[in-house]
């Protein structure tokens, strides 16, 4: 067989493989992905639906609205941008799997990156897709098994912990908030810049907390009002920075 023949056979094979990739594999990925994500969306809210409508555990509508406003305003940036940021590495199947099972940044993304570079497999090829799917599926199963062990073991552990340790869990939330706030201070761009970036909102929130505490009618809306006004302040600062941009261009 001449070299030309070998090359043309390989070319024909990859062409056939590419056709399978484009015409069979990719449509199947989206059929599986879309169906399972839609099903999971419904299943995720099932306990809430059950507790509210079957058991009648109904908190006030205003607190539900506050939760929706507060969490949507924190989440929307991430909801819109995060999957798209990881998609170029995870591929579509990997993104569906990652955003159902979670731990994308700490677990699925490193797995995908690692496998693709070790095996020299581009995600936009059949080869890259197959190793990525296999690796992520494996990490999902192992993660769930470990989680189950931890949760069951954790409950047992909590049962035997002495009272003084249990009492210290009262400081979990304040510890979490402290580490979150200082972590953001310590983020990219340096402490001074981050503190300066967050200070106006933190200050506004503290002031609002005191003011709202004095007005009973506002108490259940406190969080939503705070977030809303902080975002409004954010918009003012955004406009100011846009103006600065325009001036530096001039």
């Amino acid at each position: 067989m001449s070299e030309n023949n070998v090359n043309s056979i390989q070319a024909a094979e990859t062409e056939a493989a590419q056709k399978i990739y484009k015409d069979i594999f990719i449509p199947k990925v989206h059929r599986i992905g879309r169906l399972t994500m839609a099903a999971a969306f419904v299943l995720a809210f099932l306990p809430v639906i059950y507790f509210v409508f079957v058991k009648g555990y109904m908190a006030s509508a205003s607190s539900y609205m506050s939760v929706i406003v507060a969490i949507s305003s924190i989440g929307i940036g991430m909801w819109l941008t995060e999957p798209l940021a990881y998609w170029p590495v995870l591929g579509s199947a990997g993104t569906y799997m990652g955003y159902l099972s979670g731990n994308v940044g700490a677990m699925r993304f490193p797995v995908a990156l690692n496998l693709q570079s070790v095996m020299n497999a581009n995600i936009n090829t059949m080869r890259g897709q197959i190793v990525t799917i296999v690796g992520i599926a494996s990490s999902i199963v192992v993660n769930l098994v470990l989680l189950l062990i931890f949760v069951l073991g954790g409950e047992w552990l909590i049962g035997i912990l002495p009272e003084v340790v249990m009492a210290s869990f009262a400081f979990v939330m304040v510890g979490l908030l402290g580490s979150m706030i200082f972590m953001r201070f310590n983020g990219e761009g340096g402490m001074a810049k981050n503190v300066k970036g967050m200070a106006p909102y933190l200050l506004l929130a503290v002031i609002l907390k005191f003011v709202i505490g004095k007005i009973p009618a506002l108490s259940t809306w406190g969080m939503a009002v705070t977030v809303g006004l902080c975002i409004a302040l954010g918009y003012v600062l955004y406009k100011r920075d846009c103006k600065k941009d325009a001036e530096t261009v001039k």
Binding site: A70, S73, I74, I76, G77, M78, L80, T81, V174, L177, G178, M180, I181, R184, G197, M198, Y201, L202, L203, L204, A205, V206, L208, K209, G222, M223, T226, V227, L229, C230, I231, L233, G234, Y235, L237, Y238, D241, C242, D245
Partner: peptide
């Protein structure tokens, strides 16, 4: 260009952290 999304998420996150920690 400059996007409003990072401003919004920083404002909301900082506001909520400040509100909750009090």
């Amino acid at each position: 260009g400059r996007s409003f999304v990072p401003y919004m998420s920083n404002a909301a996150m900082s506001g909520l952290l400040g509100y909750s920690v009090l």
